[in-house]
Design a protein around this nucleic acid. Structure first.
Length: 415
RNA sequence: GGGGAGAUACCCGAGCGGUCAAAGGGAUCAGACUGUAAAUCUGACGGCUACGCCUUCGGAGGUUCGAAUCCUCCUCUCCCCA
């Protein structure tokens, strides 16, 4: 089975520029013992990847597992422009320092997901388009790259059509040229012949394919992955706290695990294909589960997805923590926690205040509302007084368990 | 350069000079029902030991007993003309 077939089976296929030719190319490479090189670009707009980046990242992981060579392209240059795709308004400009910091953080995260250093032919490459984009002079770029682009055609891109209503700045209008040029540069430097990306990148990808053909008279290809949405069409990867990050500092492994256990029934099968490396037979078996048994599938999903990002040990801990609070008994240590100085318990501490500092409520008022609505439990007992104060009497061997709603648990350690 | 429209809470979006902490929808959160689903119904949704007080309607001033609402200037956005 070639990589493209594997992509199809697991749901990683949306559009391809020329699937027939792509297969031929892959077969030829395989027959000659060579590897194929593909890249995906990520703009360093934050200092961590989040769940929204996961499909392309998983795509690259599979690509490498299939024996090919992935390139992770960090958009240190393009992020200075801002991809207008899917945006209604221009994104704020990042400073050089922010970019450097973000690029660095993303590089470290990516390095944990793929093999970059083994020296194998399939060892991944990390590139930064700032390395080549920032060297260009304006006139030179226009003459050498710009003249290959038709404005008439660019205006037909969905991205720009919608932006014609709300406004589009010239800087953003140039984004496809830069991304297209990346492909040209990567094809020259690394013999990269495929660009992978989310389906919203289609226009940018074919711009690159066209550019390489025009300049190099060489056929390269584009392949897009579906966008990560729930079955109801909403974007995935968001919780009330915001994006679900891959950085354990921003989203703990426990929270990460919880995110996956809580996906809708309707999305479980899809997610198993996308976010685990389980063989498809296993994915299909789990996907056939119905009713309450779907929970088993969700647990496998959460376990595997967490393992991939945070490692076996953290995944096991997150799972134990989940079992402890939802199944009763067991190891509570993995539940998110904060500490509280014992001395403060002497005259009581406002529960609402503790909830705010633990991130369980945005304000004391909200915390009190939650209590009023019967959504707060302390050590398993429903709290009824919004102004309740925590005292030493509540210290259950130095541990207090606050539950908000049905799923949010937080431990307070008295120290 | 000229003319017009506009900026309201997380998003969209109403808003007569007082009865506006600001309609409605979405998102979100909580409760009930469940399986740590979905759908549905109910409630909450600026802050604050709270039938009151404080801070909000792009920014800065002003008029007024009283301003989201009127005036002036500024910033930004969109549309049309050249």
């Amino acid at each position: 089975m070639d990589i493209w077939e594997l992509y199809r089976q697991r749901g990683f296929a949306r559009q391809a520029t020329d699937e027939g030719a792509l297969k031929t190319l892959t077969d030829t490479a395989a027959a000659g013992g060579g590897v194929l090189t593909a890249y995906t670009g990520f703009d360093p707009t934050a200092d961590s990847f989040h769940v929204g980046h996961l499909i392309p990242l998983m795509g690259l992981i599979h690509f490498q597992r299939a024996g090919h060579r992935p390139i992770v392209l960090l958009g240190g240059g393009t992020a200075m422009i801002g991809d207008p795709t899917g945006k209604n308004e221009m994104r704020k400009m990042l400073t050089d320092e922010e970019l450097a910091k973000n690029t660095d953080a993303l590089r470290r995260q990516a390095a944990r997901l793929m093999d970059f250093d083994s020296g194998n032919p399939s060892a991944a490459i990390m590139a930064n388009n700032g390395d080549w984009l920032r060297q260009w002079g304006y006139i030179d770029f226009l003459r050498e790259i710009g003249h290959h682009f038709s404005v008439n055609r660019m205006l037909t891109f969905e991205t720009f059509k919608t932006r014609m209503e709300t406004g589009l700045s010239f800087i953003e209008f140039n984004y496809p040229l830069l991304q297209a040029y990346d492909f040209l540069e990567l094809s020259r430097r690394y013999d990269c012949t495929v660009q992978l990306g989310g389906d919203d990148q289609w226009a940018n990808i074919i711009s690159g394919v066209d550019l390489v053909r025009r300049v190099e008279r060489r056929d390269v290809f584009g392949w897009t992955f579906p966008l990560l949405t729930t079955s109801s069409g909403a974007k995935m990867g968001k919780t009330e706290k915001g994006a679900v990050w891959l950085d354990p500092e921003k989203t703990s492994p426990y929270e990460y695990y919880q995110y996956w256990v809580n996906v809708d029934d309707a999305d479980v099968a899809k997610c198993l294909g996308f976010f685990t490396l389980l063989p498809m037979e296993e994915v299909n078996r789990l996907s056939r589960l119905e009713g309450a048994e779907i929970r088993q599938a969700k647990q496998v999903l959460a376990r595997e997805a967490t393992r991939l990002i945070h490692g076996e040990e953290e995944a096991a801990k997150a799972e134990k923590g989940a079992k402890a609070v939802f199944g009763g008994g067991g190891d509570m240590d993995q539940v998110p926690s904060t500490t509280l100085e014992a001395a403060r318990l002497a005259d009581g501490v406002d529960l609402a205040e503790v909830m705010v500092s633990a991130g369980l409520a945005k304000s004391k008022g909200e915390a009190r509302r939650l209590v009023d609505q019967g959504g707060v439990h302390l050590n398993g007992e429903k709290v009824t007084d919004g102004f309740m104060r925590i005292t030493a009497a509540h210290g259950n061997q130095g541990h207090l368990m606050i539950k908000v709603g049905k799923k949010k648990f937080h431990r307070v350690v008295v120290a």
